[in-house]
Computed example of a mutant assay.
Amino acid sequence: MTDFSTQLSAYLDGELDPSAASAVEERLAADPAAQAELDALIAADVLAQEAFEAELNAPVPFALAQQIKSAPMPEPEAPKARPVWGALAASLVVFALGGIGGYALKGQNTPVQTAGWLADIADYHAIYASQVRHLVEVGADESDHIENWLGNTVGATFSIPDLTEFGLTFEGGRLVVANGKPVAQLMYRDADGVVVALCLQRTSKTPPATPTFNEQTINGFDFVSWTAGEADYVVIGPSGQPDLNAIAGAAALDI
């Protein structure tokens, strides 16, 4: 295991100081291999969490939940580096406690894990993509308002891309939150009712001169993500969505 792998573990756990975190983010923006290693860690975490879902969905005895709620929290320890798989195991413990009811985390100031925003987006998309009448908060007939409202809230200016060449009609937008930061979610739908979303969140990275497009699948959805200008972007569609790379490329040029 390399020193950078250990740094990535600490980064995902929110254990790096601002200067060290910034250095990691700069390397991720400039080094596709480093970004691929981070994506692999996130994907491994997601797979491990999915393996635990059956257990986590089982009913929790009320007495056990009460014990967890009343148990005193240990004093926080000074941050220390952990091996990557140790970090993943720790994340599963936190996830499991959250499944029991979140008692162990209630009232705690958990560090923001900026790299995990795509998993949150997958959760939102799974809910909103099935909506028809309530797909968006603000409809496409108020596009100027959407650009001003979401741009000001997210802290990144953008224009709504025209994706009609891919058979996608802009339906409108909504505001969501991922890792404690506001996210603009622009929703498109094709003639068959399939929903594709373009999401953006203000970035803390130094954007590369030329965007690097990263592909991954999370919770049954395909993603193409990149960083440019003031924001991190991602296009999300159902698994196997055709032309998703081309859609991302067109959006990057138009936004």
Score class of each variant (00 low, 15 high):
4 F>K: 09
12 L>E: 14
16 L>E: 13
16 L>N: 09
24 V>C: 09
26 E>I: 04
27 R>L: 02
28 L>Y: 10
31 D>H: 07
33 A>I: 12
36 A>T: 15
46 V>G: 01
47 L>W: 05
48 A>Q: 14
48 A>N: 03
50 E>Y: 03
52 F>T: 05
53 E>A: 13
58 A>H: 08
58 A>M: 01
63 A>Q: 09
64 L>V: 13
66 Q>N: 08
67 Q>Y: 02
69 K>H: 14
74 P>C: 13
79 P>C: 12
82 R>L: 15
82 R>A: 15
83 P>L: 06
84 V>Q: 01
86 G>R: 08
88 L>K: 04
93 V>C: 02
93 V>S: 03
101 G>I: 05
103 Y>H: 06
103 Y>S: 04
109 N>K: 05
110 T>D: 08
110 T>Q: 07
113 Q>F: 06
114 T>I: 06
120 D>E: 07
126 A>R: 11
129 A>F: 02
137 E>I: 07
139 G>M: 00
140 A>S: 15
146 I>R: 02
154 V>I: 06
168 L>D: 09
170 F>Y: 11
172 G>P: 03
172 G>C: 13
174 R>W: 10
177 V>P: 01
178 A>G: 03
180 G>L: 15
184 A>V: 05
185 Q>P: 04
185 Q>L: 13
188 Y>N: 10
198 L>M: 07
204 S>P: 12
207 P>N: 12
208 P>S: 10
211 P>T: 01
212 T>D: 05
214 N>M: 09
216 Q>W: 02
217 T>P: 06
222 D>Q: 00
224 V>H: 01
227 T>V: 14
228 A>H: 12
232 D>A: 05
233 Y>W: 11
237 G>Q: 01
246 A>N: 10
246 A>D: 12
254 D>A: 11
255 I>Y: 01
